[in-house]
Amino acid sequence: MSARTTTGGVPERQVPPTSVRGAAQRGVVARPGREAVEAKGWLRAHKWLLLRRTSQLGILALFLAGPWLGWWLVKGNLSSSLTLGVLPLTDPFLLAQQLAAGHWPYREALLGAGIVLAFYLLLGGRLFCAWVCPVNLVTDAAAWLRRRLGLKGGKAAAANTRYWLLGFVLLAAAATGSLAWEWVNPVSMFHRGLIFGFGLAWGIVGGIFLYDLLIAPRGWCGHLCPQGAFYALLGRAALVRVAADKRSACNDCMDCFAVCPEPQVIRPALKGVGQDHPLILDADCTTCGRCVDVCGKDVFRISTRFNRSES
């Protein structure tokens, strides 16, 4: 295969045949990441994905160990929980709605929301989306199937719809005096459903899967979800960032764009559009690390916002 390109550290600017661009030239369905598997081995080409799934499922397992096995390490759900009987954690997005609805909660909820807020402010707001949120499993599955089936196009809402929706969610809470969004919020509903029972909530989760698969690519997480928008706002000064620090090695295969849940964030860093450093500073980046995995040239790595060096 012509994918083996690294010879003596000098990268060839040859587009791999299975990559997005290579497949487009040949008119077949692309398999982004295949070149990386051949260059780095399967494990290293799925490192961040595996870590992320471990994190997502591990957190879910902590919540499920109680009701399933009777090991009550963590009680509650992502909306609010109590770990080992001492550590309260509360979703600051819910707290924001609650304050908008005019309710001042007890100290536990304030403290819990403060801890969560501090964590995501410091490390990266949308780490929640990529590493914790269970809906990510659903939308990732839809995106994967979309790629495998070669489904193109679709009609997504504008990417800033989520910020407007976030505003209206808080407005609706204030206007109705209740947590109006929580009647339909698929994020909290899916997690609660897994732990406490679904009822008809499967319908909402299935709806998101089909919406992402058939109507809008990355439609929910990337365009509509007001909870993701909330966490993106938290992550504007986040420490952990992805850097395209070996961007000189890029062979324009476009695989990173194909797997990225927020592809618009890559270009400024990778191609130096509007900025001179290789850091992805856009708060919409979920720091999922999938671009690191699928790049056969090891262009990307997880770094910090202070490291602007390029190698």
Partner: peptide, 8 residues
């Protein structure tokens, strides 16, 4: 307005 549906 107050219940966050956490199930505690």
């Amino acid at each position: 307005a107050a219940c966050v549906r956490c199930g505690l």
